[in-house]
Simulated assay, not measured.
Amino acid sequence: MITATPRRRASAFDPMESIRCWGKPTRQPSHRRPAASDRSSQTRRSAEQRCNCLKERQFVVLPEMAWAKRLQITFLILATIIIGGVSAVDTYWTFKNQDFLYQYEQNPVGRWLMEQDGGDVALFMTFKMVGTLVVMCTIPLLYRFRAKWGITAGASVAGFQCLLFVYLNFGEYFVQL
């Protein structure tokens, strides 16, 4: 008797998926096409059975994989908090020192934006906040579509933000050395 085979291959993380979902272990399909009598109601499943099968698949997660996913998501949340936190500190210092910021600003784009706004930092800060929001929204999207890219981007941006935080708060000590 020929058993039904799933339309997609079982996941590499859960080789037992086809056994749980279809009820019987599947064998490699033969090269012959089954006869019309073999393709009867035995091999076809009702819509309700397919739905139940999909419901079962949603909750099947190996403990190791769940732990790794939780760790990755925790890391991304932490990286996003670091990015937002350092940006908030940078915004604070920008508004606190806006009277003489143009003299000390080392970013040429930032200096140009301040020139365009008549020496005010409002346009400069608007672009910084929009850029920060774009980055903070893009990193989870990257993780959703390509996990390695999201983790790499999150780690890189959070690392650079940490270096920026050290430079902004302790940079004067490094210049004196």
Rank of each mutant, 00 (worst) to 15 (best):
residue 146 R to Y: 05
residue 79 A to T: 11
residue 116 Q to I: 08
residue 129 M to H: 06
residue 139 I to T: 01
residue 118 G to V: 12
residue 122 A to L: 08
residue 125 M to E: 15
residue 85 G to S: 08
residue 125 M to S: 09
residue 130 V to A: 11
residue 142 L to S: 05
residue 80 T to R: 15
residue 76 L to E: 00
residue 121 V to L: 10
residue 127 F to I: 15
residue 88 A to S: 01
residue 110 G to H: 06
residue 75 F to T: 02
residue 124 F to V: 07
residue 120 D to F: 11
residue 138 T to I: 04
residue 124 F to Q: 06
residue 70 R to H: 12
residue 90 D to M: 08
residue 115 E to C: 07
residue 116 Q to S: 12
residue 147 A to M: 10
residue 142 L to T: 03
residue 143 Y to W: 14
residue 91 T to V: 08
residue 83 I to F: 02
residue 77 I to E: 03
residue 92 Y to T: 09
residue 112 W to P: 04
residue 149 W to K: 04
residue 90 D to Q: 05
residue 134 V to E: 01
residue 129 M to T: 12
residue 138 T to Y: 05
residue 150 G to P: 00
residue 137 C to K: 05
residue 75 F to G: 03
residue 104 Y to Q: 05
residue 141 L to Q: 05
residue 80 T to E: 09
residue 85 G to E: 04
residue 145 F to A: 02
residue 98 Q to H: 14
residue 120 D to L: 09
residue 147 A to V: 10
residue 142 L to Y: 11
residue 101 L to M: 13
residue 118 G to P: 14
residue 98 Q to V: 03
residue 85 G to C: 06
residue 146 R to Q: 11
residue 112 W to S: 08
residue 80 T to C: 13
residue 124 F to K: 08
residue 86 V to Y: 10
residue 135 V to G: 01
residue 108 P to N: 12
residue 98 Q to Y: 13
residue 94 T to V: 14
residue 112 W to H: 11
residue 84 G to Q: 13
residue 135 V to A: 10
residue 91 T to D: 00
residue 79 A to M: 11
residue 139 I to M: 05
residue 109 V to M: 13
residue 144 R to L: 13
residue 130 V to T: 11
residue 111 R to Q: 07
residue 141 L to H: 05
residue 89 V to E: 06
residue 74 T to P: 03
residue 90 D to Y: 03
residue 78 L to C: 15
residue 134 V to T: 06
residue 94 T to P: 10
residue 107 N to K: 02
residue 147 A to G: 10
residue 104 Y to P: 01
residue 88 A to P: 01
residue 82 I to E: 02
residue 146 R to W: 09
residue 106 Q to W: 06
residue 105 E to W: 07
residue 135 V to S: 04
residue 138 T to C: 11
residue 91 T to K: 08
residue 113 L to Y: 15
residue 151 I to E: 00
residue 111 R to S: 13
residue 96 K to I: 07
residue 141 L to G: 06
residue 116 Q to H: 12
residue 109 V to D: 04
